[in-house]
């Protein structure tokens, strides 16, 4: 099924935006994992002997039963037997093959456990549990599980296997970078949708708690004190009071603002929660608690670019002390 077919229609009027989450973790390898993945680069498959004497492929650093450190490496064959399989007619992004293939658990000759990978076969009728397969190596190998491009059917004899191996290779792989990207569609929900829609008209709309009567800006739909839905929409601001602030001296990546600048908590008039924003139009060392500010919008901006002084007298401390 395509991704489009999996996603049912969304109600009209709901705001949606793409949200991409990427997390390229850099992971270090233990000695057994390092030998295994370096071996794949060199077209050698290594297993590890467990405390009970089984040869485990892919190998791990610690015995899965006793948790003892296990280090005795054994070379196993690049040929093996399918122990179970599943035909995948619709390969998904990043999977080993782009055209239909079988997922398979393969017990390599000389191993006692099975390895998961793709099996390239003409169709499901060509795959069965117990069939013989061998590794098809990737042309470019870096020391990763993907150095095995996939398995392929194999009628010939088993490779030699069972020889002890010291796991030593020139230029061993000591880490992997695990790339990952997930694509989401973000929808903000009822309260934040109203907030965002009002911002597009350069208005700031909060929501009042029906129980404690606090006005939350931006609203998230619930009063965190009372645990009830905030329902009454309340327009606040546009002006407000700086309740506290900090001076930023480190330039952020992708942010074209000269340092130092002031980032502040701003209680908009009528709001019971301060939001945050940058203060401009005043030297950074003259910003103070109680400063009265108003939003500055830029052409096409979806939210205030920054806040600047209104020129009014500073607010009394008592007027905002509960909002710090």
């Amino acid at each position: 099924m395509s991704a489009a077919a999996e996603a049912a229609a969304s109600p009209p009027g709901v705001l949606r935006a793409p949200l991409v989450v990427e997390f390229p973790f850099t992971r270090s390898l233990g000695p057994v994992q390092s030998a295994f993945l370096t071996g794949l680069r060199e077209r050698v498959v290594l297993g590890v002997r467990t405390t009970a004497g089984q040869v485990m492929v892919p190998p791990v650093e610690y015995d899965p039963v006793t948790a003892e450190e296990i280090r005795e490496l054994v070379q196993v064959a690049t040929t093996g037997t399918v122990t179970t399989w599943a035909w995948n007619d619709h390969p998904r992004p990043n999977q080993p093959l782009d055209s239909p293939f079988a997922w398979a658990l393969v017990r390599l000759d000389g191993a006692d456990t099975a390895l998961l990978h793709a099996l390239d076969a003409p169709g499901p009728d060509a795959v069965r549990t117990g069939m013989r397969v061998r590794i098809r190596w990737a042309a470019q190998r870096t020391g990763a599980i993907t150095d095995i491009a996939c398995f392929e059917p194999h009628e010939g004899p088993a490779d030699p296997q069972g020889a002890p191996h010291d796991g030593a290779f020139a230029e061993p792989v000591t880490g992997i970078v695990a790339e990952a990207r997930l694509d989401y569609t973000y929808s903000p929900g009822r309260a934040q949708t109203a907030y965002i829609n009002a911002l597009s008209e350069r208005r700031t709309v909060g929501e009042r708690c029906p129980s404690c009567h606090k006005v939350y800006v931006p609203p998230r739909g619930a009063c965190p004190t009372c645990g009830v839905a905030t329902t009454d929409r309340v327009e606040v601001g546009p002006a407000g009071t700086v309740t506290t602030y900090c001076v930023v001296n480190i330039k952020a990546r992708n942010l074209d603002i000269e340092v130092p600048y002031v980032y502040a908590h701003i209680a908009l008039d009528g709001a019971d929660l301060a939001l945050h924003g940058r203060i401009g139009g005043i030297p950074y060392d003259q910003v103070r608690m109680g400063l009265r500010v108003e939003p500055v919008w830029t052409e096409g901006g979806r939210y205030p670019d920054h806040y600047r002084p209104t020129g009014e007298p500073d607010a009394d401390y008592d007027a905002y002390k509960e909002l710090i």
Binding site: T84, A86, R92, Q95, A104, L105, L115, T146, I176, A180
Partner: peptide, 29 residues
Amino acid sequence: GPVRDVLTRQLDPYYLAPLWPDSVALAAL
């Protein structure tokens, strides 16, 4: 999100996650 792909991120990051075997594929095995 694409939940079948999202769930691959709970898998062993060395030997399984790089292959993106989705939740349905693993259940099918």
